[in-house]
Amino acid sequence: MISPRLAWLLVALGALMLVLAPIDLTGIGIPYPGLKRYGTYIMTLWLVTAIAAMGVNLIVGYAGLETLAQAAFVGIGAYVTALMVKAGWPFGLAFLASGVAAFAVGIMLGFPALRVRKHYLAFVTLAFSVLAWLVFRNEQWLTGGVMGIGDISRPTLFGHTLRRHVDFYWFVLAITAVLTFALWWIIRSPWGRAFTALRENPIRAESLGVDVRLYTLLAFAIGSAYGGLAGSLYAPLVEFIDPNPFALGPSLLFMLMVVVGGAGRFAGPFVGAAVAVLLPEWLRFAEGFYLLIYAVLVMTMMAFCPTGIMGLAERLLPARRRPTAAATAPLLGEAKP
């Protein structure tokens, strides 16, 4: 693998390219016309999706738990933000409230699952996913039901409105950077080590003083909070929300995304979100068949490289042993519920 210094350089270069992506550079002699309005919008959607996927990666890839409800948490964040912004609250407050709400619901959801066996967290989240969607759809007085909530205004920053796609893109990019750094910090802290321990061997971890129940709740709640924060950005991005993107199907797609990108790999969610959000735009010719192709690709990948695209890249790049927190062992191994 590449050395840490080169890795930092690549990250910095990637960040620079993302900042410059929407700008027309032909004026300074670089033949790059910049992204159009729609391209910028899709890039923003990719970032928002990646934030939610990062949360799933923490839960699934690092802590070895399961979640089938990330879209529901995105929904919680989106509705909290939409309602608060419409009621005249500042976006910053709505953003925080979205994260806190998803965190709190995540804790509540984790509790029942802790009492029981391994796969039951997946079952509980699956049930929650559908229940949350029913609430979004049925509680018309609050969520507008199937008619949804429209005209969600974009935030203003220092008196400057972010109504233009480009401005909002940079805003989301900055938040993504902060959230990415925060997650990176968590994962490399002793907390991250404890999360990995509970993925690899919860019984041994418990015997070493690691409070497995608490860390399970924390991983699940932090991951869910990332979903809520993503939702908070999603609402002003699309400016109209209805219950459909927050149903069970999209939650399952989040799970696919993370595993396709590479569960337990830090860059995995960004890659997985790119495959889910950006690729269909480039594969316009495939039109309605995109999901078919995607499904076949996922199934092939699981059979031949269950560590995802990042795992494949690691395998193909010149091998150099390095300490990694990534799972090469079969995920969820042998456990019977």
Binding site: P190, E200, N201, I203, R204, L208, G209, P323
Partner: peptide, 20 residues
Amino acid sequence: LQVFPQLTVRENLILAGQEH
């Protein structure tokens, strides 16, 4: 055997002490 196979030897030991 109950070690954490994907953590290094040093990380295994740090984990064993960190919660204290």
